[in-house]
Design a protein around this nucleic acid. Structure first.
Lengths: 303, 303
DNA sequence: AGCATGAACTTTATCCATAAAAAACAACTT
DNA sequence: AAGTTGTTTTTTATGGATAAAGTTCATGCT
């Protein structure tokens, strides 16, 4: 059966809004709520029905207003707000990156389905989606081949990344002064400086910033294929570093400094400087990844 | 129910082998056949059973030998030798490229499933696979958005293609003289010259040659992400030009000459020459595509 | 032991069913 | 007329079933 994660997530959001006082007094119309929560009115109505049922809101001659205060255990647990497909993704990535899955292993849809507790259909859809990341390959009528999250993979990925980023950075620096992206860049620079101040406690925040930064660079000259590659990078890094936290603070600190230098170079509009800063940053990112890869391999082997 | 296209295709191949005399006299073992036909032994046995049943081969105390001659209507029709997934692909591409499907149209899985006569699952799997081509986009819980086979798409694709090809061509030309790829290149050059001789009748053969050529260039410095882009290009061009045959001979003739110039440049190992020839060829390919796109639009509008 | 066939078992490709979510339609209200 | 809410219809997300194809095990023959 289809999961009702959309409803549950919407319910939790609504509960949050009630708690924050965003919905104090008389509630907005179903349509208005629908817009704010980005779900269909059908779902909004389901949420409202449940809110009434739990007396979190009251309804009197068609007028809805806030009811009793929201308590912590009114919320649905997080796991129930994530669709199956996402769970499959998470479990698969863990299986692949954490387990002792060696390059050359063949992937069995049925086995994964059993292991993850879903129908084979979901596994298959995930694998098809995932195959564009270049880590697995389909052999018709037979199964999938895991090619491995290897050094080769990382090298190939970074080779393309460098090409793309140099191109985008160059085009970014050629923008007219009046382009609104310059002020966005300045804002990002400030954000970097701020993070630097609070690095001790907030170093996890870097990955969000990193994303925004690299996506901003691409915004000056959009190209869907470049965006795609960046999706891959984001995805891979997200999961890889999620289980690989050695030196995280150190790593991020270095990267912040590189970013700032890179931003300065962009602002200088000097193409040589841009190239140097861009290459320096990517070289360092690659080195970090490679180091974590080999170390990762060792721990796997010894596990 | 799963289609038995694997069996039918294998059967046709076996029939062909019988007809060609490749299996004259006593037949090889099941395992040997399995290897030759690239299917499982289970399928081989099914084929053999049917061949016996139709008296195309005879079996006597476990010894199989050829039987009556193969007739034209022993073959299964082509349509029955293609798996559903492939049919979906073909029908979808036709729907997209030939119909009046405008950018911004939303794609309905259920409707396509009905239209193509398959289960929604097959449609969905195809769409997921196809989404990496950058022409459609998924909006969760809602459907797919067709972004259009537009000029923008072609421009973005070619921008990347140029970057990749310049990089690969450059690296190709840096190979040591003893690399075996040089002789492969020479062979391809001859093939081009041959095709030029028989261009009047054989101009369709160009696309195969084109593929081999560009893939060869990439072989010198493999990168899976570059191969991926080339898959996209191959796929798109295949379908686009399948229904868009204007000036085909003309187009291919020009391209052959460009390829030859490009090969000469590579053989000269002179990087400036390589770059010039490569750019010239890709610029021309882009122009051709763009022209066919606009013309294509017009015919669609008037259709 | 090594290869051939036969039989049993496992996995993939494909269809179908259904609850959840979205969209469309209808009827009211201001 | 535009925005509400109530109702119905359509579509997506997900599970389940099964024939075809692949793989493994068993048996027998040189």
């Amino acid at each position: 059966m289809r999961t009702d994660t959309v409803y549950k997530k919407a319910f939790n959001r609504a509960a949050n809004m009630l708690r924050d006082g965003q919905l104090a007094g008389e509630l907005p119309s179903e349509n208005e709520l629908r817009r704010r929560m980005c779900v269909s009115r059908t779902t909004v109505r389901k949420v409202l029905r449940e809110l009434v049922h739990r007396e979190l809101i009251t309804e009197r001659h068609g007028l809805r207003s806030t009811g009793r205060p929201v308590s912590d255990n009114d919320y649905y647990p997080d796991a129930e707000t994530t669709p199956r497909a996402k769970h499959v993704e998470q479990q698969f990535m863990e299986w692949m990156l954490r387990g002792d899955t060696r390059p050359g292993t063949s992937i069995n849809e049925l086995e994964l389905a059993r292991q993850f507790g879903v129908a084979t259909n979901g596994i298959r859809e995930f694998l098809i989606r995932f195959s564009r990341f270049g880590l697995i390959e389909k052999r018709p009528n037979t199964g999938w081949l895991f090619k491995g999250f290897t050094e080769d993979f990382a090298l190939e990925l970074f080779e393309i990344r460098v090409m793309f980023e140099l191109r985008s950075a160059h085009l970014f620096s050629l923008q007219p002064d009046r382009s609104p992206l310059w002020s966005k860049l300045a804002a990002l620079k400030t954000a970097h400086a701020d993070l630097l101040e609070r690095i001790e406690s907030r170093f996890h925040d870097f990955s969000g910033l990193d994303n925004r930064f690299h996506r901003l660079i691409n915004e000056a000259s959009p190209n869907r294929f470049i965006d795609d590659l960046y999706d891959i990078i984001t995805f891979i890094f997200h999961y890889h570093y999620q289980w690989n936290k050695q030196d995280e603070k150190q790593r991020n600190l270095a990267a912040i400094h590189e970013h700032i230098a890179y931003i300065d170079a962009l602002e200088s509009r000097n193409s040589t400087r841009v190239e140097v800063a861009c290459r320096a940053h990517l070289a360092s990112a690659r080195k970090t990844l490679m180091r974590s890869l080999t170390r990762f391999d060792e721990t796997s082997i010894n596990a």
